[in-house]
């Protein structure tokens, strides 16, 4: 059974303030149903007594205080994880935008993740060969590290990033993409 709350008190920018709620925790994922039947999504930014402040991921355009119903899922935003993601194109919430079916996976994980215990980390040492000689020779990338591309408007940073993703190898295997 799902409980939907209707007591929307305030709409401002991307925020919805809803009153009279009970048992809502911080950082919960919210499904928001508009009067028109449209489904939107949100996250709880703050709970104060019986008030909850919800950030609407799709924006509040077209939302009214009357007729908006919010369902609190009791869980943080999570997505299914697994190999079902390979070859798919999805939006920031994990919903498909390639016209295909929803992505399925054996289990769901919260998108925020949990911090990795630093004592379990191994210091990264295995080189990633990007095939871009200036990176490989001067600013070597190793597996498990980060490679930010600082760029200015008009520079082909996306092409470079894609090139690296496509042709990189580590330990003789394709590193990512491909």
């Amino acid at each position: 059974m799902t409980i939907e709350f209707t007591g929307v008190r305030e709409l401002r920018g991307p925020l919805v303030v809803v009153g009279g709620v009970e048992g809502v925790g911080w950082d919960e994922f919210v499904r928001i149903r508009l009067d028109s039947g449209e489904l939107r999504h949100g996250l709880v930014l703050e709970v104060d007594h019986d008030l909850a402040v919800v950030q609407v991921l799709e924006g509040t355009g077209g939302m009214a205080t009357a007729g908006t119903r919010l369902e609190f899922t009791g869980q943080p935003l999570s997505i299914p994880v697994g190999t079902g993601w390979l070859g798919r194109t999805c939006d920031g919430r994990g919903a498909p935008v390639d016209g295909g079916p929803p992505v399925f996976g054996a289990r769901r994980e919260p998108v925020a993740g949990a911090p990795l215990n630093p004592t379990w980390r191994e210091a990264p040492a295995e080189q990633v060969l990007t095939g871009v000689s200036v990176i490989d020779a001067l600013t070597t990338l190793v597996r498990g590290q980060k490679l930010p591309l600082f760029s200015l408007p008009g520079h082909p940073h996306l092409e470079l990033a894609t090139q690296i993703a496509v042709q990189s190898t580590a330990g003789g295997e394709p590193f990512c993409g491909g």
């Binding site: 009970e22 048992g23 809502v24 925790g25 911080w26 950082d27 919960e28 709970v47 104060d48 007594h49 019986d50 009791g74 869980q75 943080p76 925020a112």
Partner: peptide, 9 residues
């Protein structure tokens, strides 16, 4: 620690 899920009450 992370306070996700912590509720009034």
């Amino acid at each position: 620690e992370y306070t996700g899920g912590l509720r009034p009450g």
